[in-house]
Design a binder for these strands. Structure first.
Lengths: 152, 152
DNA sequence: ATATAATCTATCAAACTGCTATGTTATTCT
DNA sequence: AGAATAACATAGCAGTTTGATAGATTATAT
């Protein structure tokens, strides 16, 4: 299964959320603005994150979302599985997939399992905190985009 | 990018082709029967394999396809890329994808690249020959399915 | 000549993706 | 109390992809 915008937006939103949660709940509106994605689409994404208890919410004015655990206690794997379902490079090894009649003789099954394993291991090795560190680093070292105003 | 049936059928078909190419070209009809997939669909798949020179063909009676190289000289990666295009877990790192305006600051990019790398490395480590060995092994050790006739 | 099998082009239904639209409910602030 | 804010819920929808099918043409062995 390829990771769709649901997963990529969601992960970026979680990083954004973590980086802006010093002063209470973070509204989807603010995340949507900073990340330049549809707020309505984010709503759907956060509905899933909430169901998996990765975030909690507070309604009304000054409301918004906040993380339910420390960033270093949240693996990227968890976030993506919550949004995309069990990740598998092929459909036949996916969660709800009906049993393949060829599974006993299929010579490619081993291969797909290895790839799924490699993906899972990579995702498990990253926590949300790791990505926050990465984000902060990039913030500092990014080419200055504000300066663009002057140059035309 | 998830690997679709195009890739999985194609890979299985290549294994099948390799295992039955002792006596000249192998027809798609025979592959389709053995692998239980649509012959017309296989045609589209083999059109791609031929364009990438992984197979060659001979028309007419006694015609069919044959491998252009030895199975151990053909990596699974090649076969799948030929059928699915450059494999990437996310669209933004895909081949024809337009440059992401956020690529300099995106904290998740590293992660996707790692996963793509892990997938590529796994696929590179398998040749068609490896899968043939796997297939022969499974052929021998599979639960006897012919016996089913007797038991109703 | 006939049967076989590749080759080519077009079409298509169903599913998925990436949204948008339209509300309703809860909470804070004035 | 009332207005503004923001989560929550459900429905719809255009565009793309997927997994084929259909029909016709060309090449080759017997």
């Amino acid at each position: 299964m390829r990771i769709s915008t649901k997963g990529t937006y969601g992960l970026r939103a979680m990083i954004d959320l973590a980086m802006h949660s010093d002063s209470g709940p973070v509204s989807l509106k603010s995340i949507a603005e900073r990340q330049d994605v549809s707020e309505l689409y984010l709503e759907q994404i956060f509905a899933l994150l909430r169901k998996s208890s990765l975030v909690e919410s507070k309604r009304g004015v000054k409301g918004g979302y906040y993380l339910n655990r420390e960033p270093r206690e949240i693996s990227v794997h968890e976030i993506l599985e919550c949004l995309e379902g069990k990740l598998s490079i092929v459909q036949c090894l996916e969660d709800g997939s009906e049993a393949c009649p060829r599974d006993q003789i299929c010579p490619t099954r081993v291969l797909w399992k290895r790839i799924n394993g490699a993906i899972a291991r990579t995702l498990d090795s990253y926590t949300l905190e790791d990505l926050i560190v990465e984000a902060r680093y990039r913030e500092q070292n990014a080419p200055d985009q504000e300066g663009g105003d002057i140059l035309s």
